[in-house]
Design a binder for these strands. Structure first.
Length: 948
RNA sequence: GCCCUCGUAGCCCAACCGGCAGAGGCAGGCCCCUUAAAAGGGUCCCAGUGUGGGUUCGAACCCCACCGAGGGCACCA
């Protein structure tokens, strides 16, 4: 019966009481309020003024209706433990949390439930906030906000106007205010990078100048083929489309369709985004993903008459036997011949009467095909001939020019020189169309045929002006590139796979653009930024916030933003400095990545209505720490799935803000760690349906549900697998501290791991034993006594401190917990279950476990007679004197095999070790009749005698 | 196809800069406590590091190849 349980045992019930009480007290006392050096949140800064700062954060959650399962808090607890450790170890720690709340899922959930997205989103935020509070995390809740708060998105919109108001100076390699561009154009010290008009700047009308300037902005309107997803009713960025041509969210087909959309000129930052990766403390795999996505490749541009191609293999130019343009290439129309020649190959003409007909039909077909179709057709090469040829600048040969969809618009120049001898894709095309293959790289003897993409000496690459024969690849590239430059046929160049970021969405639940267009006048339709005094542009309430969606495969449909239906809102009279005028508002909204691009900055200064962040606060929390340091958040923890979305976009915005002088840090996230995933077993019955995993029992090596055998599988925790475990269930059964310790004990933070509810009891037992060291569970008396610990106990104590610090600083909390467990086991054995325990032992144990089990730590600290919070007590420091033994046991090996164990003084040097080892009778016996060739002695470790 | 990460007891995981493979937990066995069970305490058990080579006095660790798992990219010229 329960009356046999000691009255003062640390049971789940007691843990609950303690936890709820301390959570209330933390809130009431503002224990985790982090003071800023200046401004409205600076109360109490004196207390921490001389401490180093530490800014830790998680990727903030997207509040879905399902709430958190036990997988979500893994990262949150990792930063929480680190935050608490650093605070105890003398840092001024900032550990905030917010909510990413605009975007498709919230909108879809709202449509399903028939409620306004703000209602459902705010309810979800409240639910998740309660879950987080119950876990005992030390967030400074004064700094919490959601991206949907008008006070926040006002500044998201303002940053947009900054990007809109800037251009990228390729000479300076940085963004500058657009006014400086206009000034330089007016002064004649600079020519426009792009100018669609035939006349120079000085001769343009004011409206034409506006149009030229608009083409230079970092946020610009562009008509180009974009990813149109009829199933979602919106366009998407490249990052949101999967490799098989579907929407990442919803898995709908995506079509390439020319539309006018807002773009962000992230490509201007390709090189800096790439090279600055080297200055970040991120995992190699994550950096690699960004490098792949940016996709730099070096090569040459080569001109074949009017057609300019990009190639990474200019060395194979002698083998180029035809050219290919992308279907959307701007020169296609102009280059198309009037008629086929009499002897036109029927394979090249697609049976059309004229080249124009063939090309038009092919272009139409290409535009209607989704990205998925393009790949689904087994990559069979298709295309048509333009009826024209271009001259190979090296061989003088006439090369037929094709249009084919295996060449992509927007990469390189959208045109290629085809070298079927050395390129697999070109070879496939050449086979279908009967085009000649010229080998310019010598394949090995046993080469099977087809395109040879390996290395070898150049062949068939000579004429009277140039010879590459016999050269290796690098030398051939250098030679031919030099020749092309010298003769005006091309130049060396670098291209990137990264495309500009498509920034507008035809959805309701997002930040409105701070952009209006004059309705009348000569400048009608040209975009104008809404000035900061008139921000935020509030998202209007509308009757129907659902997007206009279409049949999944309706490629010809066109987007229709829900805001365009809010007629009261779209037309507005404003005075933007030139008197009241009528404007039409931009009705697209921003993608949900916008709000997460800068939220880390807002934590620093969450209520500021005058600026997006106080520069002094940015410099304090984010600024570079030394010459060449990029600055940024000291530890950012989140899932790897954001490798090329959020993390790339946020870096881009941050660099723009840096260039414009708004922040002092060059990068947003100095150190980034991807926490592992928690997976769980799931079970299927004989029909293949998932059964509730919680009710499956293991017996005789098999698994059973309601008596019937079931099959076990392993996967992500989720509703469909019926294997969800929530933190609420765990805190109800064991308490938050046990849950925290369990999650942290299962491996290093980066490691993915299985969830095992039945193993949680191990962490419960550990906390019970720690409690028992400090509190007599029968009497409830504190056991701390004024006596000195034995030398053994001191050594165990200091060793534990050393190990726990190591685990905490390297995010290997499992090691920290193991050291605490060892210490606890030592103390349990030494001091039993009752009677006095030296006070230092009680206090250090209490503090060591503090970051991991903060409520337990507070309770014990308080019972030990302290009035302040243990969260602000100093973390114990190990004395190195207790970490070393006077004597150490070393192994003596003969030829690498351990043959003896010897106790030697800890400070014995190599010579002494060697002498002792060779003098040992067992070793001496083994060496009889042998010659000692070498003795390796490593002080403190071992001796290895090599003999034969 | 290319790139990245990772393979250590039945399971999750430790092992410093290349130096005696085992810290911790789960599961399992036994003992104590208990009328009994649970809870609690104590104690024991189990691998030679995916495979095959190489470097080294010495390899879980470094190198090569292969196998397996997970992830990223992929008609990017």
């Amino acid at each position: 019966m329960s009356d046999t349980v000691p009255a003062h045992r640390y049971t789940p019930e007691l843990a609950q009481q303690i936890e709820l009480a301390w959570q209330d007290r933390w809130e009431a006392e503002g224990t985790f309020r982090t003071p800023n050096p200046t401004g409205p949140l600076s109360d109490g800064f004196e207390r921490v003024a001389d401490r180093p700062k530490a800014f830790l954060m998680d990727m903030f959650p997207y509040p879905s209706g399902a709430g958190l399962h036990v997988g979500h808090p893994l990262g949150y607890l990792g930063t929480d433990v680190t935050s608490r450790f650093l605070r105890m170890d003398g840092h001024n720690v900032l550990h905030p949390m917010g909510f990413d709340a605009f975007g498709l899922p919230a909108e879809q959930y709202a449509v399903q439930t028939g409620q306004h997205p703000r209602v459902t989103t705010e309810a979800n935020i409240a639910a998740i906030s309660a879950q987080l509070r119950r876990l005992g995390v030390d967030h400074d809740t004064r700094r919490t906000f959601a991206t949907i708060d008008p006070g926040y998105y006002k500044w998201t919109q303002w940053i947009f106007t900054q990007i809109f108001g800037a251009w990228f100076d390729t000479v300076a390699g940085k963004a500058r205010p657009i006014a400086e561009l206009v000034a330089e154009l007016d002064a004649g010290t600079r020519e426009p990078d792009t100018n669609p008009f035939d006349r120079p700047w000085a001769e343009l009308t004011e409206v034409e100048r506006r149009q030229v300037v608009d083409l230079h902005r970092l946020a610009y309107l562009n008509q180009a083929p974009v990813n149109w997803c009829p199933g979602l009713g919106t366009v998407l960025s490249n990052e949101e489309v999967t490799a098989d041509g579907r929407s990442e969210r919803g898995n709908f087909p995506v079509f390439r369709r020319p539309l006018t959309q807002w773009m962000m000129r992230i490509t201007a930052y390709s090189e800096r985004l790439l090279t600055d990766l080297d200055r970040l403390d991120w995992s190699d795999s994550l950096k690699q993903m960004q490098r792949n996505w940016i996709g730099r490749s070096t090569g040459a541009r080569v001109r074949f008459g009017d057609i300019e191609v990009f190639t990474t293999r200019p060395d194979t130019l002698f083998g180029a036997t035809y050219l290919v343009l992308a279907p959307e290439h701007p020169l296609v129309e102009a280059l198309t011949a009037d008629a086929w020649p009499a002897d036109a190959d029927p394979r090249w003409t697609a049976g059309a009467a004229t080249p124009a007909e063939a090309v038009a039909a092919y272009q139409l077909q290409a535009s209607r095909r989704s990205e998925l179709d393009r790949q689904a057709e087994g990559r069979e090469k298709t295309g048509v001939w333009l009826g024209t040829t271009a001259v190979n600048p090296l061989t003088g040969a006439d090369l037929p020019v094709f249009v084919a969809d295996y060449v992509l618009t927007g990469y390189g120049t959208g045109a290629i020189m085809a070298v079927p001898g050395e390129d697999t894709r070109d070879f496939e095309f050449a086979e279908v169309f009967g085009l000649p293959v010229v080998r310019t790289v010598q394949p090995p003897e046993d080469f099977a045929g087809g395109a040879y993409t390996g290395t070898g000496p150049m062949i068939n690459s000579s004429n009277d002006r140039l010879s590459l024969d016999g050269l290796d690849k690098a030398a051939a590239i250098a030679t031919v590139t030099g020749w092309l430059v010298a003769n005006g046929y091309g130049e060396a160049t670098t291209t990137y796979k990264l495309r500009d970021w498509l920034f507008s969405r035809q959805r309701y639940w997002g930040e409105p653009f701070p952009i209006v267009y004059p309705v009348d006048g000569p400048d009608a339709g040209l975009p104008v930024a809404v000035p900061v005094q008139q921000l935020p542009v509030l998202l209007p309430d509308v009757d129907d916030y659902s997007p206009k969606t279409f049949a999944d495969d309706d490629a010809t449909s066109a987007p229709e933003p829900p805001l365009s239906r809010a007629t009261e809102w779209t037309t507005v009279e404003l005075d933007l400095g030139d008197g009241p005028r009528t404007y039409r508002r931009e009705t697209n909204t921003m993608p949900n990545w916008a709000g997460s691009c800068w939220y880390y900055l807002r934590y620093l200064d969450p209520a500021d209505d005058e600026r997006f962040v106080d520069p002094e606060l940015e410099a304090y929390w984010m600024g570079p720490r030394s010459e060449g340091d990029v600055g940024g958040v000291d530890l950012y923890v989140g899932g790897v799935e954001h490798a090329v979305l959020h993390l790339l976009y946020a870096r881009f915005w941050h660099k723009v803000l840096f260039d414009l002088g708004h922040v002092s840090s060059e990068e947003p996230f100095r150190r980034l760690v991807n926490q592992g995933y928690i997976s769980a077993y799931a079970y299927t019955d004989a029909r293949g349906f998932h059964v509730p995993a919680a009710d499956v029992v293991e017996r005789d090596g098999g698994y059973f549900y309601e008596g019937a055998p079931v099959d076990r599988e392993y996967g992500k925790m989720g509703k469909s697998l019926k294997n969800v475990v929530t933190p609420d269930e765990m805190t109800a059964a064991y308490g938050a501290d046990t849950f925290r310790v369990y999650e942290m004990s299962t491996g290093p933070l980066e490691q993915s791991r299985p969830w095992e509810t039945k193993a949680v009891v191990g962490s419960q037992r550990l906390l019970q034993r720690i409690w028992r060291v400090v509190v007599d569970e029968v009497t409830g008396e504190v056991r701390a006594a004024d006596e000195a610990p034995s030398i053994d106990t001191l050594k165990a104590l200091h060793r534990a401190v050393d190990g726990v610090r190591d685990g905490m600083t390297t995010l290997r909390f499992n090691i920290a917990i193991a050291r605490i467990t060892e210490l606890t086991n030592h103390l349990t054995q030494t001091y039993g279950q009752s009677g006095p325990v030296p006070r230092q032992v009680c206090e250090w144990l209490t503090l060591l476990v503090g970051p991991l089990a903060p409520h337990l730590s507070e309770e014990l600290w308080s019972r030990l007679g302290h009035t302040g919070s243990s969260a602000w007590a100093s973390f114990p420091v190990a004395d190195p004197a207790y970490l070393v033994d006077d004597t150490v046991q070393i192994a003596v090996q003969v030829n690498g095999k351990v043959r003896a164990q010897l106790d030697v003084p800890a400070d014995a040097d190599a010579a002494a070790l060697e002498a002792v080892a060779l003098a040992d009778p067992r070793i001496a016996e083994l060496l009889v009749g042998k010659t000692v060739r070498k003795v390796v002695a490593v002080p403190g470790r071992l001796v290895n005698v090599v003999a034969n």
